[in-house]
Amino acid sequence: MTVTATPSLGLARFVLLRNVTAFRRAWILLLSGLVEPVFYLFSIGVGLGALIRTVTTDSGAVVPYAEFVAPALLAVSAMNGAVADSVYNFYFKLKHAKVYDAMLATPVSPRDVAVGEVSWSLLRGALYSSMFLAVAWVAGLVHSWWSLLAVPAATLVGLAFGAVGMYAATFMRTWQHVDYVNLVVQPLFLFSATFFPLSTYPDALQWLVRATPLYHGVALERALVLGEVSWGLLWHAGYLVVLGVVGVLGTSRRIGALLLT
C-alpha cells in the first residue's frame, strides 16, 4: 500500500502530537513554568507594591504598582516558558535523545520539526499565561476586558522567544553554551521596563530597551491588561511575529544542516 503524505507542514501537527503524548505523564512538570511568575507577582507586585503604591505609566495613567507589574510578569512567564522549552528541551532532543533523527527518516521534514516544536512552545505559553492571568484576576489586579487578548499576545511572546531560542540552540555544542542563555534572559527580565516605566531610563538607554524583544512583549501585555489600547500595539506584535518567523526559518535550515549529513 502506498501512503501519500503532504511533503511539508502538514506533518508538523504530528510533531506537536508527539510532545503532547510525551507530556501526558509529566504534566506536573508543566506547572513548574507557572510557579515562578506567580511568586514574583506576590513578592514584588504585592510586597513592593505596599511600599510604592502607585506608578505613572508611559501613557500617563496612574495605576497601583501591582497592576503595573502583573502584565509584565505575564510576558516574562511566556518568555521563560518558551526559552526553557525551546532551549533546554529542544537542545536535549536534538543532540542527546536524537528524537529528530528518527522523525526525519519519515516524511517529516526539518520545517515540520521546527513548526511543530514552536507550536508546542506556543501551546505551553498559552497555558501558562491563561493560568497566570486567572491568578492575577482572582487577586484583583485585572479589570479591563482587553485583558482577554493578553493570552494570544503571550503566545506571540512565546513564538518569538521559542523560535529564536531554538535557532540559538542549534548552534550550541555543550551544556555550558546552554547555560549562557541565562546571561541573555536575566538582563531582559530586569531591564525591559518590567518593574518601572520606560521613562525612568535615560534617553539613550530607552532606545536600547526598545530594541529588545521582551520590551515589546511587556509593552503589549501592559497596554492590553490596563486597557490602554491603540494601533501602536500592532508594531509590538509585528516585531514579535517577525522574530518568530526568522527563528522558525533559521531553525529548519539548521536542523537540515545538522542532521541530514
Partner: peptide
C-alpha cells in the same frame, strides 16, 4: 503509534 502518525496514518 507516534511513528505511524508521522506517515499521516
Amino acid at each position: 503509534w507516534v511513528y505511524g502518525r508521522f506517515f499521516g496514518l
